[in-house]
Design a protein around this nucleic acid. Structure first.
Lengths: 157, 157
DNA sequence: CTTCGTGCAAAAACTTTGCAAATTG
DNA sequence: CAATTTGCAAAGTTTTTGCACGAAG
């Protein structure tokens, strides 16, 4: 764990504990480790990924894959975690309340640039509202070829 | 089928036939029906959904679920179709070359509403340009709770 | 102590694969 | 005709479930 105070994680943990209490569920070591692992690793996880990572980082705790599935479902139902998948990859999980999710992705070299645009975010709110949705998050990915790769492609000819 | 000419579908069909020819594969009745069904129904399909719909619309053709899977994989690999999934709903397929790909998704029931916003699309172009990217596509997903599910959540209390 | 959670293994759900017969080019 | 595709059923995968024991409140 970590001695440095982490208000962000504490908040997440409190949120989780509230969900548990509200539903008369128990706060177990396994559930804690799963939440912590999701928090510490910003990637997107398949249940197997998570299971493997936890086994590696917490070799003393024998955690079953069923517990991973059960906890991810619990976290997803309480909107602490969301899941999504694109293309051939299977379903991946991540914490729901990341600040934002905007990426420019180079299809050639995989470069990822994060960006944020207030105007777009505002527009998203409007769109949700117009459709009666209560907005909880978003993913915006722009795909293309980065400057560097454009140069290389021209050189190739 | 349809007596009215449909340039859009013809184009799609030609694209598919080209993929088939390029890979020395055959144009079969099953593959044609699957493509046509995806074209005629703008929803997002799970393999089972598609299978059921085809059985209903083409009762004379006995099409197996394995063929649906095989054809969807073929179509996805040739980028004619894409798949995505969010929340509890399983993977759904749709034609890739729809004019746009913006989705409002209910994290509770999996409802998907498509939308398009010219201003956002223009902004995306600007962002790409500002970062030296040549834009080739995008995915924008807004997550939330739909009107119906908001109602249900309140009723539960 | 009572209730819930866990790991395990079995079951269910979902997807892919092998094969003989049918269809396409 | 040769080669691919298909449906079917069997084999893989992935996810969920039942149960007895252990842990949390």
């Amino acid at each position: 764990m970590n001695f440095i105070e982490n208000i962000e994680y504490d908040h997440l943990l409190l949120e989780f504990k509230k969900v548990l209490k509200d539903n008369i569920l128990k706060f177990t070591k396994q559930r804690e480790i799963i939440l912590l692992t999701l928090y510490n690793n910003p990637e997107h996880f398949s249940p197997e990924d998570l299971h493997a990572l936890i086994k590696k980082n917490h070799p003393k705790v024998n955690i079953g894959i069923a517990t991973i599935y059960r906890t991810l479902n619990l976290l997803e139902n309480s909107t602490i975690v969301t899941s999504l998948s694109f293309g051939k990859a299977g379903k991946k999980y991540e914490l729901a309340n990341k600040p934002h999710h905007d990426h420019l992705i180079c299809k050639n070299c995989g470069l990822i640039i994060e960006f944020e645009d207030r105007k777009v975010e505002k527009k998203q709110e409007e769109i949700a509202k117009a459709n009666g949705f209560l907005l909880t998050g978003h993913v915006m990915q722009l795909y293309g070829i980065c400057k560097n790769c454009q140069k290389k492609q021209i050189e190739k000819r």
